[in-house]
Amino acid sequence: MIGSQPRPESSQGGVVQAVIQNIINGTMMGCIYALITLGLSLIFGVMNIVNFAHGDFVMISMYFTFWASSLWAIETVATPLITFPFLFLFGILTYYLIIHKTLREKYVIQIAITVGLMTFLRAVAQLLWKASPRAISYSIVQGTFVIGNYTIMMSRFTSAVVSVAVIYLFSLFLNHTWQGRAIRAASDDLDAASLMGISYKWTYALAFGLGTAITAIAGGMLMTFQQVDPTMGLRFGLLSFCILALAGLGTTLGIIISGVIVGIAESLAMGMWDPRASSLVVYMIFILVLWLKPRGLFGRK
């Protein structure tokens, strides 16, 4: 049953019920998407680099979770405790090894380097785990509960709650700790920040590491109810870019709302129209936003 949509039977008002059911599912997915996007926006906001490999970090995280859970029988929900520090280190290393050198280059070069990273991660995943989808066999958060006429999957619900909580914790971190403020200062005005004794290199590396590490949590949560395959990265990448374009830069709340909008749109498209149509709808939103509101709905710049 993993990954399947709970579908209500058609009855009187079945359509309305199905719509609401999809909105509920979409809202929960949207929260996870928002968490993924938060990592992307952290990196983008600070060093003006859009990390194309972001979605593939999510994919890699999901595989790590799969490993941890199937090889060492670690509970899926708890795997981020291991994968988070690992991806954090991985992000920092990535920053120092490849991203840092391209900061002063042309945009095309900056895009090329993360596109290269994205392709590399996908190839590695295909070599290590082959093309067939993988899923975990057991998690404590399986099962469903029912409110009124609506079925809610325990795993999705938990994931949404965890995502919102992590987003909240991150905004606390950014606003109330020295390191967090350093990141925000660097994204506002690099020159002023370096005058105040903030090492931009470390701040950038920290932001990149954290932005990457967030995908560990998202990946772990996603794994409780989804399969993973090596081409998934691009899908998550595009989803989070779409949400970022919708949200614009700067507000955490904007990211959550945009995430939920995209999640609902995707869920409605899948449930009511055609399971294959989700990327179509997400892309329409993306293009419409770029046509109509190129700075996003909640952007400040």
């Binding site: 070069i109 596109v115 290269g116 990273l117 994205m118 590399f120 996908r122 590695v124 295909q126």
Partner: peptide, 15 residues
Amino acid sequence: SLYLGIYSFVLIIIV
């Protein structure tokens, strides 16, 4: 997919 790995590796090295 090995070739994709090599492609991207070459890309990163060149860049």
